[in-house]
Design a protein around this nucleic acid. Structure first.
Lengths: 192, 192
DNA sequence: ACTAAAAAATGACCGCGGTCAATATTAAAT
DNA sequence: ATTTAATATTGACCGCGGTCATTTTTTAGT
């Protein structure tokens, strides 16, 4: 039968997460090295991989937690009634996703369940994001010819597109906020 | 003063590219190892990195060339006059982009100029893609309230979204083609 | 031809993510 | 308390991308 999780296990895991967060806070996500994390946590390298399947799994958890916290703030607000309000609400999330190229790449890589059997923290936040946006669209003054779920998928697609262009050498004359406003207006308020 | 490029340089580079293509043809993109490529090409490891800044640069070139060839085919056809025709035209490209998860990730990572000074082969193909789609939209029976360039950016955003969901464990009940059709209809033929 | 400088090729070496057989610790059974 | 099986930890080791001082080859000047 399945045994209970040992206290030691939780302690070690907590030490690893704390050490990782310290590294990220001081040096950023991209600079994180597993060797540095285990040294800071005072455990052997192998222990790390007994707790996380790989380095990406740790990042998935930490970045997923950050996004979740941002979504908490977003969900706590009243539903925006126009594009400008919607962009305002989404900007903290957008800013986090653009804080480092490495972070953006990792989020994209984990946004779907990434062909793994179990869905990870970041993928879960994408589901939540869709629900929050869907809820906004339900009563709002936006196009009514499509399901809110489909519209929400479009909002995600354009958010990713806007973020991508931040890292693009060609199109950086227009700000992230302005580009997202442009996209969402075209998507949610078409006037053909 | 700058000297002319040696014949030997071009030969070595060709040997590396040929060896790489052989590996890819037999084992796929993800399985490619630099060590195997240089062994097959009969050169030292250091030589590889004298010709390509890193492994990604080689992939950028090879995948970029493939996409370019697909865009040649697409551009050679007459402009599609409806969503179905547009999706038909785009499908070969979509299928290539979904042939391997590794390929998709690499394309995304290089789709913008990736914060590098010089724009790479894949990033160039994205520019071309935008031009081809813009040209389609110019005379076609699609929404006229936005610039064709902006509409083309949307087509790219939805293409990426559709591809992403192929690799997503949650949403794989609907096919890539059907999803792209759904998205492009909603984007290019809104009826609010 | 000979020589000097520029360019190309080499391979030992490093950094870092990830593995695994061996060892240590914990918790249940007697 | 002792045994036993499950679980957690360890660190030497591996694979592979990437570096760089050294050596080899090519080119241009005389």
């Amino acid at each position: 039968m399945a045994r209970a999780i040992q206290k030691r296990t939780l302690q070690t895991r907590a030490k690893l997460v704390k050490a990782a967060q310290t590294v990220i806070d001081t040096q950023g996500y991209e600079a994180l090295r597993v060797e540095q994390v285990v040294q800071l946590a005072g455990v052997a390298k192998g222990t790390f991989f007994a707790h996380f399947s790989d380095k990406d799994a740790l990042m998935d958890q930490l970045i997923g937690a950050r996004i979740d916290a941002l979504l908490d703030d977003i969900a706590a607000q009243t539903s925006p009634q126009d594009i400008s309000g919607m962009v305002d609400a989404l900007m903290p999330l957008m800013n986090f996703m653009t804080c480092e190229r490495y972070v953006f790449d990792l989020i994209i890589r984990h946004s779907g369940a990434a062909a793994r059997e179990e869905i990870g923290p970041i993928a879960t936040t994408f589901g939540r994001h869709g629900e929050v946006v869907s809820h906004w669209l339900e009563g709002g003054p936006f196009r009514q010819d499509l399901s809110v779920e489909l519209l929400a998928e479009g909002v995600q697609a354009f958010s990713i597109q806007a973020i991508s262009l931040v890292f693009c050498a060609l199109h950086n004359e227009i700000s992230l906020r302005d580009r997202l406003t442009l996209y969402l207006t075209a998507w949610l308020l078409p006037k053909p």
